[in-house]
């Protein structure tokens, strides 16, 4: 923790920076620190925002001023190795690949020099770390996609991409949580609602969790979509084993 930096981001928040690269170990430290902070008795914390390599801590200066807060946060960092952090969760996200749902799957396969089935196999073989959420509500920045299926963005972005679309952009992959414009290569769609403002937990994924995609057929897609439209579908999840896979 020697190189953790505390950066001033105005008078109601501070950025705790754990490093200057995108890496799973750094992100794991952020997750551990965020859990330790939420379990701590440090007063005045309003909300925290984990990103690739930092945790932004918003606080109320009426409750705790900047200098004492920094002392508390430094103290917490010093105890991190003594705190037991539960393993990350893996969210299992069903995807209907190809066809109308994944109009760019043929292009991604051609670009990779593989069959569509091989692309699906590679895309579903990895547990992707959710480094952070941002851009739009519920949009996940995932890490760990195989370079074998990396594909450049569309030259002309689409005006409207439906919620649930699963795409590839360069070496990134992810799910569009809300209908939006975008230039990702669309390879499939999930019937799972990553975002639903009416739900008790409006946004499904959390930074520090992992996403594992698995392929489903049209019948399964329709079944889950119907459940989402009715009482809601409960995504399967399991604790991640050390080392993944």
């Amino acid at each position: 923790m020697a190189d953790v930096r505390f950066l001033l981001t105005g008078d109601t928040s501070v950025c705790v920076e754990f490093g200057n690269e995108i890496s799973e170990p750094i992100n794991a430290q952020i997750r551990a620190f965020n859990i330790a902070l939420s379990n701590s008795s440090i007063p005045g914390i309003v909300e925290t925002v984990p990103t690739y390599r930092s945790l932004m801590v918003h606080y109320d200066p009426e409750v705790i001023r900047c200098a004492p807060l920094m002392d508390e946060l430094k103290g917490l960092l010093g105890q991190l190795d003594k705190i037991v952090i539960p393993p990350s969760e893996v969210l299992e996200i069903p995807v209907l690949y190809g066809g109308e749902m994944g109009p760019d799957l043929p292009f991604v396969a051609e670009h990779a020099g593989k069959t569509e089935e091989e692309v699906i196999k590679i895309h579903t073989s990895t547990e992707y770390l959710i480094y952070m959420l941002g851009f739009t509500p519920g949009f996940t920045y995932l890490g760990g996609m195989s370079d074998e299926i990396a594909t450049p963005r569309l030259k002309t972005p689409r005006v409207k991409i439906p919620a649930g679309a699963v795409g590839i952009a360069g070496s990134q992959t992810g799910v569009y949580p809300i209908e939006s414009p975008g230039g990702w290569q669309l390879i499939g769609r999930t019937p799972v609602r990553m975002y639903d403002s009416g739900r008790e937990t409006p946004i499904l994924p959390q930074a520090g969790q992992y996403i594992k995609f698995y392929a489903i057929d049209q019948a399964e897609y329709d079944k889950i979509a119907a459940q989402e439209a009715a009482e809601g579908y409960t995504v399967k999840r399991h604790p991640r084993k050390e080392g993944g896979k």
């Binding site: 981001t9 105005g10 109601t12 928040s13 690739y52 390599r53 930092s54 932004m56 918003h58 941002g134």
Partner: peptide
Amino acid sequence: IISDGIAFGA
């Protein structure tokens, strides 16, 4: 930079 959080007034 590698993306990080943004405060009001940043």
